[in-house]
């Protein structure tokens, strides 16, 4: 028979076990990607240029090749890839804050974007803050909370959850289960290509469903006078405040994606609409959407290693040329 005393005793034992479980998870998750990135940022204090963004930057930015592209006239630059897959503007802002704090020589930031990353608000439910997005739980949860949610309840709850390693790190542990689950799910089906970001075909789903929808979204953003995403705004504002030059780079896309989306007046008008918004941070916009041929892509979205070399070299060269020409003023567009 369960008495009140026994029940409370069970609760106390459960609390103790839960504490142990958290300690165990904390130990096991030391090698998770967000923590590795944090360590990498802190161990590269000499960095002069950092690239921030999601998997497009992680896969596409090759620091060595960027430096080679930059150093055509003999000068040198130490570049750093702070891109991380499955992250959004809030995580980019937090990574940017780490860079401003621990890489004091970083005088330039490259911010890679695609589609509506600069104006989509991206707020969502607590359950979406997962896997690599747990940067928000690891780095500065108090800062992140203000940009992540639509409801105040999650916002207040979030910093408390950040103290629970099982919540913070559940993504890195789940990733192992998910791999088995995918293997299980693929049984009996033709083999599908995948890379370390996931199944290649899945990235098609990230695209807006039709060209018409995409163009409508471009027009909608202008009609609604959408501001720069609050987290990106905060990142750029702080970087600008530190005297850091900001390069906003439209990341390379496949011919198919460009045909369906970027090669339209709607997208061009949307980009023109963004220019004055970005001018307040003295940012330079670089359109690299068509820099890399399709065969150098690893999947419908990400550059392969050769594509990363091609893109990074050209980007290094382009930024160097820009800086040689003049010191960047209000937002301008370069190709």
């Amino acid at each position: 028979m369960m008495t009140a005393r026994r029940f409370l005793g069970s609760l106390v034992v459960l609390a103790g076990l839960f504490l142990l479980f958290n300690l165990l998870v904390h130990q096991l998750s030391r090698g998770s990607l967000p923590r590795k990135l944090l360590r990498a940022i802190r161990s590269a204090p000499d960095t002069e240029l950092a690239a921030i963004g999601n998997s497009l930057v992680e896969a596409g930015f090759n620091p060595g090749e960027f430096s080679r592209g930059w150093s055509q006239d003999g000068s040198n630059i130490r570049a750093f890839n702070a891109g991380l897959g499955s992250t959004g503007p809030v995580e980019h802002y937090l990574v940017g804050r780490q860079i401003l704090r621990y890489q004091p020589h970083s005088q330039r930031i490259v911010y890679g974007y695609f589609d509506f990353q600069l104006t989509d608000d991206g707020r969502g439910p607590l359950s979406e803050v997962f896997a690599n997005r747990s940067i928000s739980l690891i780095y500065e949860p108090d800062v992140a909370a203000g940009y992540l949610f639509t409801n105040g309840w999650s916002e207040r709850f979030f910093p408390w959850l950040a103290r629970l390693p099982v919540f913070v790190e559940r993504g890195s542990i789940w990733a192992k289960v998910e791999r088995q689950r995918r293997w299980f799910g693929d049984l009996g089906l033709p083999r599908s290509d995948s890379n370390h970001f996931g199944r290649a075909e899945d990235f098609r789903y990230l695209e807006t469903s039709t060209p018409e929808d995409f163009q409508e979204k471009c027009r909608g953003a202008q009609a609604q006078r959408r501001p720069i995403t609050p987290a990106v705004d905060a990142l750029f504002r702080e970087a600008d405040g530190h005297g850091v030059r900001i390069y906003v780079v439209e990341m390379p896309m496949t011919r198919r994606h460009r045909d369906r989306t970027y090669d339209s007046d709607a997208w061009r008008n949307y980009n023109d609409y963004l220019l004055p918004l970005l001018a307040q941070y003295h940012a330079v916009v670089i359109s690299a959407g068509d820099w890399v041929p399709d065969e150098l892509f690893a999947d419908p979205l990400h550059l392969g290693p050769a594509g990363a070399v091609e893109f990074s070299h050209r980007l290094g060269s382009a930024i160097r040329t820009l800086e040689n020409q003049r010191s960047p003023g209000p937002a301008e567009k370069a190709r």
């Binding site: 369960m2 026994r6 029940f7 005793g9 069970s10 609760l11 106390v12 034992v13 459960l14 076990l17 839960f18 479980f21 359950s127 997962f130 896997a131 099982v166 919540f167 559940r170 993504g171 542990i173 789940w174 289960v177 998910e178 689950r181």
Partner: peptide, 24 residues
């Protein structure tokens, strides 16, 4: 020791729930 076993069982369930809840 039944109440301790119960706590261990709860912990097992809590652990499984935490690890698997992502795909909810």
């Amino acid at each position: 020791g039944g109440w301790v076993l119960l706590a261990v069982w709860w912990m097992a369930l809590v652990g499984l729930i935490t690890l698997f809840c992502r795909q909810a």
